Simulated scan of single mutants.
Amino acid sequence: MSESLENLQHKLFSEEYQIGAGSKALQIIERITREHLFCTLFFAERDRSYTSMLLPNADSGSLVLDLPLDLPTQIQSGTPVVLLARIDGVITGFRSNLRERSPEELVLDFPEALYQMQRRQLYRVPPAVGDPDQVMISRQGAETFLGTMQDISVGGMRALFRPAPRDFPVQAGEHFPDVRFQLRGGNELSLSAIARFTDLHSQRGDALVIGLEFQDMSAAIREGIAQYVQSRDREILKALGIGLGGGRASGTAEQPAGLGRKLRRWWRG
């Protein structure tokens, strides 16, 4: 069984993986911001995660992130938060608190320490336009339902189902014996999964978002998903014109004007 990000965050924060909060930690955070790497956020007393990006910020005592579109309004200032990101296959994370929330941004306290651990397979990417993205889930004693893949990693998938299943509501912890989907250039994949979170958006026509954790994968399926994830990672960076090594001679790699807006339009679109 693949280890999930939810499980990983409980293992990461130990002395074994701590790198401190000195100049090296600052360089790592600056790189996450400069290369616009995707970050996964976990808020206290929330069962699911949210995806965002660190934004440039002149205040050295805080960090600024793009506001996730689906972040509940109940999450407000003072909420503890865990941030995870991937740098060259290394999971990087820290604990902080939400200092401020605005209509477009989140402001976090600067972390006291940073942690890193090797876990390449857990990085998540969205499918490309034109890639197969249909997901079919078979349930025990209920109707099969179809949805659309939102993002995928070797550990699992986030998928959107509109309309939500109408016969029996999906609950966190439910086991799905057969989840079928296809990746670019490959055959249909079939595996089992567990629903790690469910999020019903009644204002959007009873659309349901499910976070799936894959179970009992064969080595061939695991390798196929890993290759797709790595390929999409490179495509995303290339399409955005970032993370390609430009400006290394100066050590500060200045971004082109307007890149922040370009990224936000792409990410939110």
Rank of each mutant, 00 (worst) to 15 (best):
L5A: 04
N7L: 08
L8P: 02
Q9Y: 07
Y17C: 03
Q18H: 07
I19W: 01
K24L: 14
I28Q: 05
R34F: 10
H36W: 11
F38H: 05
L41E: 02
F42D: 12
F42I: 14
S49V: 07
L54R: 02
L54Y: 04
S60F: 06
S62I: 10
S62D: 10
V64R: 03
L67G: 06
L67C: 06
L71V: 06
T73R: 09
G78F: 03
R86C: 08
R86E: 11
G89V: 12
T92I: 08
R95S: 13
S96R: 07
L98D: 02
R99A: 15
E100W: 02
E100T: 04
R101D: 03
S102L: 05
E105S: 06
L108A: 02
L108Q: 01
Q116I: 08
Q118T: 11
R119I: 13
L122I: 15
M136D: 07
G141Y: 12
T144A: 07
F145I: 10
F145P: 00
Q150R: 13
D151A: 04
V154E: 06
G155E: 05
L160Y: 01
R162H: 14
P163T: 11
A164N: 00
P169L: 04
A172R: 04
V179N: 01
N187A: 15
E188G: 09
L189N: 13
S190H: 15
L191D: 08
S192D: 13
I194V: 12
I194G: 02
F197Y: 12
D199Q: 06
A207E: 10
L212I: 07
E213R: 07
F214Q: 08
I221T: 12
R222Q: 13
I225V: 15
A226I: 13
Q227Y: 09
D233W: 00
G241T: 11
I242Q: 05
R248M: 14
A249T: 14
G251W: 09
T252C: 11
G258Y: 04
G260H: 08
R261I: 15
R261F: 13
R261Q: 15
R261G: 12
L263W: 04
